[in-house]
Computed example of a mutant assay.
Amino acid sequence: MDQIQDKLTGEPFTPARSDQKFATRENQIRYNNLKARKKRRAKAEIDRTLDANRNILKRLLEEQKEVVKSRDYLLGAGFHFGISTHKIEKNGKTWSCVYEYALMPLKDNRLLITKA
């Protein structure tokens, strides 16, 4: 079999298998860890914001089934309205969701918050 270059170090090696891309298992692990770290860093800011939003909604609901809060109240609590995980249609209304929590705009700049 011909020599190929290790994907991490670029060193030439002769693979033992046809699908082998790394000279050593340690190089493969290091390459995958670096790749995962790069992905985590790229998502970190949004993930932190989503986590903070979820914690705010969790704290507001506690054991209640639903709660109504003003947009200003949520902003004051640190909620970021620009980031959500998904949207759902429920009773003909569009709800913005942060993981398992759903928010639906009401009149007078208030929002109904519930578990989705």
Score class of each variant (00 low, 15 high):
residue 21 K to L: 11
residue 21 K to D: 04
residue 23 A to P: 03
residue 23 A to G: 08
residue 25 R to H: 10
residue 28 Q to W: 00
residue 29 I to C: 02
residue 30 R to T: 14
residue 30 R to P: 08
residue 31 Y to Q: 09
residue 31 Y to R: 09
residue 32 N to A: 08
residue 32 N to V: 07
residue 32 N to G: 00
residue 32 N to K: 10
residue 32 N to C: 04
residue 33 N to E: 14
residue 36 A to F: 01
residue 37 R to V: 13
residue 37 R to P: 08
residue 38 K to R: 14
residue 38 K to D: 10
residue 39 K to F: 06
residue 40 R to Q: 11
residue 40 R to V: 03
residue 40 R to M: 08
residue 41 R to S: 02
residue 42 A to H: 09
residue 45 E to G: 00
residue 46 I to W: 01
residue 46 I to P: 06
residue 46 I to F: 02
residue 47 D to R: 15
residue 48 R to E: 03
residue 49 T to I: 14
residue 49 T to F: 01
residue 49 T to S: 07
residue 50 L to N: 12
residue 50 L to M: 15
residue 50 L to Q: 12
residue 51 D to A: 08
residue 51 D to K: 10
residue 52 A to P: 06
residue 52 A to E: 04
residue 52 A to G: 05
residue 53 N to E: 02
residue 55 N to G: 07
residue 55 N to D: 10
residue 55 N to M: 11
residue 56 I to L: 09
residue 56 I to Y: 01
residue 57 L to E: 02
residue 58 K to Y: 00
residue 58 K to E: 03
residue 58 K to W: 00
residue 58 K to G: 00
residue 59 R to Q: 14
residue 59 R to F: 06
residue 62 E to W: 03
residue 63 E to L: 09
residue 64 Q to P: 08
residue 64 Q to N: 14
residue 64 Q to C: 09
residue 65 K to C: 10
residue 65 K to S: 13
residue 66 E to C: 02
residue 68 V to L: 09
residue 69 K to Y: 03
residue 69 K to I: 09
residue 69 K to V: 13
residue 70 S to H: 08
residue 71 R to D: 03
residue 72 D to I: 11
residue 72 D to Y: 02
residue 72 D to T: 09
residue 72 D to L: 13
residue 74 L to K: 14
residue 74 L to Y: 04
residue 76 G to K: 14
residue 76 G to H: 05
residue 77 A to E: 11
residue 78 G to F: 01
residue 79 F to M: 04
residue 80 H to L: 07
residue 81 F to H: 04
residue 83 I to K: 13
residue 84 S to K: 00
residue 84 S to D: 01
residue 87 K to Q: 13
residue 87 K to H: 12
residue 88 I to A: 02
residue 89 E to L: 15
residue 90 K to T: 04
residue 90 K to M: 06
residue 93 K to S: 09
residue 93 K to F: 03
residue 93 K to Q: 12
residue 93 K to E: 11
residue 94 T to V: 04
residue 96 S to R: 07
residue 97 C to D: 05
residue 98 V to P: 15
residue 98 V to M: 09
residue 98 V to L: 10
residue 99 Y to A: 03
residue 100 E to A: 07
residue 100 E to W: 04
residue 101 Y to N: 14
residue 101 Y to E: 12
